[in-house]
Design a protein around this nucleic acid. Structure first.
Lengths: 327, 327
DNA sequence: TAGACCTGATGAAACGTTACACCACGCACG
DNA sequence: CGTGCGTGGTGTAACGTTTCATCAGGTCTA
C-alpha cells in the first residue's frame, strides 16, 4: 500500500506538503499541488484509516444498532442507511441485538472499542451505556423517539388519522384495536392518532396491545375469537395484522368478508399475503437516508440539526377492508 | 480513555511490561501480572483499536458483502453472521450492493480502506477487485461457490432430490421448471438435483429460468399461462414461487387445486402466503455462523480450513402441493 | 532601506500500541 | 572461578498520519 511518504519521495517534496495538498490546505503552490495529486492517483494511494484515526480520533465509520433484522421493517432501513453512508464515504458497522438488551449493550461496547464516529440507533434498551455517553459521539435515533436525542421517524398520528378517515369512508364505525406495545411512543401515537381523529363517529369496541413482533398473546386471541361487534380490526403494525389474519382464517373467519383489518408499515409481506393488506406506508428508505444525513451534519458541525424530523405517511389501499356502504 | 501508559504509571512498571501481561506473554512475574490486570480493570481499560491496527495490521473487523438485504433470504444470514462474529469479538461492517456490481466494488474499496481482517461475501460480480486480492485477506463465500475460494452453502442437489421424491410421493409425474438463473451454480444444482433424481419417472414438460429476485419474465408468464400438462411447478426459490402463485391466482388459476407449486429457501414469507408454500429449508443461521467460524480459523491460522462446507437441507411440507394419489 | 507581511514549504512531535534488542541478576555447572 | 543460561523487566523504534512552529525568500509600505 502506498503511503504519503512514497508520494513525497516520488514528487520530491516533504510529507507535510503531501499531507497539505491531500487535505486541501491552501499553503502549497500550484505546481506541487498538481504533481502530488497526479502521483497519488498513479500510486493508487488511499489513506491508512488506522493512522488517521489515531491522529484525528475520527474513524469515518458509524454504528447501526438494530433490534432485529428478521423483522421485515429493518432490512430496507439498513439498506438505505448503508447506501447513504457509503455515498458520504462512511462505513456502516452493524449490530443486531436479536431483541436482547444485553446483546445491545455488548454491541455498544464493541462499537466503543472501535471508536465509531457516531451511532444510528433504533433503541431497545432504555438508555445509552454511560461510557458511550461520556464519549459524546453523535447519536441519531430512528423510529423510536427518546427524550434528549435527535430522532427521525414518520408521522404516526397522521397514519392513525388516515386509517380513521379510511375506516369511515368504508363505512366502519365499530373497531377493535390490536395495538402495539403502549410503552413505545411509536405505538402509542398510532393508536392515539386513530382514536382522536373521529371520536364521535368511531367507537372502540375493544382494545388489546401486543408486541411489535406480532406474536399473539392469549388476551389477543380471546379478543379475535369474540370480536364483539367490531367490523374492523386496526392492528399496530403489519406483522400483527398478518398474524391476526392467519389466526382468523385458521379458525374459519374470513377476511375481509367477516371482518376487515388494517396494518401499519407496509412491509413487503403486506402485498403477498392473502388478502393483500391495506396499510400505512412509511418512507423507510427516506428515513434511513435522512438519519445518515443528520449524522453527517452533526459530525461536520455545520449547523445545529433538527432534533426531530418527521416524515409524512401514505395510505396503501388493498384488499383487507370490506366496503360496508356509505353511512 | 485509559491507555497502557496510565496503567504503567499507576502500577509503577514500564509500558512494555503492561503490554506483555495484556498480551499474555510469559516474561513477567506473578505479582506484577496480577497488579496490572487489576489496575486495568479498575481503569476500564480497553485497547485503542486504531493504534493496534497500525502496529499489527489487524483490525478485528470483518466485512459482510451482500447483494440485497431486502431479499428475505439475507437478513437472517446477516443476523447470524453478526452475532457469531460478535461472540468472537469481531465487528461486522456491512455492504449492501443493492444488486449492482459497481456498488459491490465500491463497497470492497471501502472495506479495503478500513483494512478489515477478512470478508464474508455472497458474490454478485464475477471476481474480487485486484487490489483486494493482493492484500490476501481471507475471503469466505456464502451460498454461491466460486472456484478458488472457501465456501459454505447448503446441499442444493439434495434439495432438488428431496423435492423430486416428494413430487413422486404426491403423484406428480409431469412438472414445469421455473428455475433460477442457470449461470449461478446454486440455481443449477437445484435444478439438476431435481431432474437427475428420477429421470424415468418424472417428465419435464417445460422449463424456463428467471432471476432469483422472482421477477417474472415474459417467457415465464407465457409458460404459466399455458402450463402444458404439468401438474406441478418447481420454482428455483420461494420468491419465484410466490410471484408465480400471485400471477396464477390473479389469472384465475387456483393453487394447489389447478396446479401445485414448490419453492426453495423457506424464507419467512413462505408460511404467510396463501397457500402456505411447500419448500426446502436451508439452515441459514448455521450457514452464517459457520462462515464466521471458518473465517476465524483461517485468520488464527490454526489449521487449513475446509474449502467447501455443505449443509443438509430439509423438506417443509405445507399446502401448495396437491395429493394426486399413488401412481 | 528597515521592517512588516505574505506565500510556499518543511522538520518534527504526537497519537497508542507492539515487539525487538538489550540488560541485570542469580544460580548451576564444569 | 568463569561461563552459560533462565527469569523478569525495560528502552525505544516503528506503524502512517496530521499539525504546529518555524523558516526562507520575496514583495509591499513607510
Amino acid at each position: 500500500m502506498a503511503t504519503v511518504k512514497d508520494i513525497a519521495a516520488a514528487v520530491g517534496v516533504s510529507i507535510a506538503t503531501v499531507s497539505n495538498v491531500l487535505n486541501g490546505r491552501p499553503n502549497v503552490g500550484r505546481a506541487n499541488r498538481q504533481r502530488v495529486l497526479q502521483v497519488a492517483k498513479k500510486l493508487g494511494y488511499s489513506p491508512n484509516r488506522a493512522a488517521q484515526a489515531m491522529r484525528t480520533g475520527l474513524t469515518r465509520a458509524i454504528g447501526l444498532v438494530l433490534p432485529d433484522l428478521t423483522n421485515p421493517f429493518f432490512p430496507e432501513l439498513a439498506q438505505a442507511v448503508e447506501n447513504t453512508a457509503r455515498s458520504y464515504g462512511l462505513l456502516v458497522c452493524l449490530i443486531d441485538s436479536q431483541g436482547r438488551v444485553d446483546g445491545e449493550s455488548d454491541g455498544f461496547a464493541l462499537l466503543l472499542q472501535h471508536a465509531v464516529d457516531g451511532i444510528i440507533w433504533c433503541p431497545l434498551g432504555p438508555r445509552l451505556p454511560a461510557k458511550l455517553k461520556k464519549l459524546a459521539r453523535p447519536v441519531v435515533l430512528i423510529d423510536r423517539p427518546k427524550p434528549g436525542y435527535a430522532v427521525v421517524h414518520s408521522d404516526y398520528v397522521m397514519g392513525g388519522r388516515l386509517l380513521a378517515e379510511y375506516a369511515l369512508r368504508m363505512g366502519h364505525t365499530r373497531v377493535g384495536l390490536l395495538s402495539g406495545p403502549q410503552n413505545l411512543e411509536s405505538a402509542r401515537q398510532r393508536r392515539d392518532g386513530f382514536v382522536a381523529a373521529y371520536p364521535r363517529d368511531i367507537k372502540i369496541a375493544w382494545e388489546v396491545s401486543v408486541g411489535f413482533d406480532g406474536l399473539l398473546t392469549q388476551e389477543a386471541v380471546d379478543a379475535l375469537a369474540v370480536r364483539r361487534n367490531a367490523t374492523l380490526i386496526v392492528a399496530g403494525n403489519d406483522l400483527i395484522a398478518i398474524n391476526a389474519i392467519r389466526w382468523l382464517s385458521e379458525h374459519g373467519v374470513r377476511v375481509p368478508e367477516d371482518v376487515s383489518i388494517t396494518g401499519f408499515d407496509n412491509i413487503r409481506w403486506a402485498e403477498v399475503v392473502t388478502p393483500r393488506l391495506t396499510t400505512i406506508a412509511q418512507p423507510v428508505g427516506a428515513i434511513g437516508a435522512k438519519a445518515v444525513e443528520l449524522m453527517q451534519e452533526i459530525m461536520s458541525g455545520e449547523k445545529i440539526p433538527a432534533r426531530r424530523t418527521v416524515f409524512d405517511v401514505t395510505l396503501i389501499e388493498r384488499d383487507s377492508v370490506k366496503y360496508l356502504g356509505r353511512r
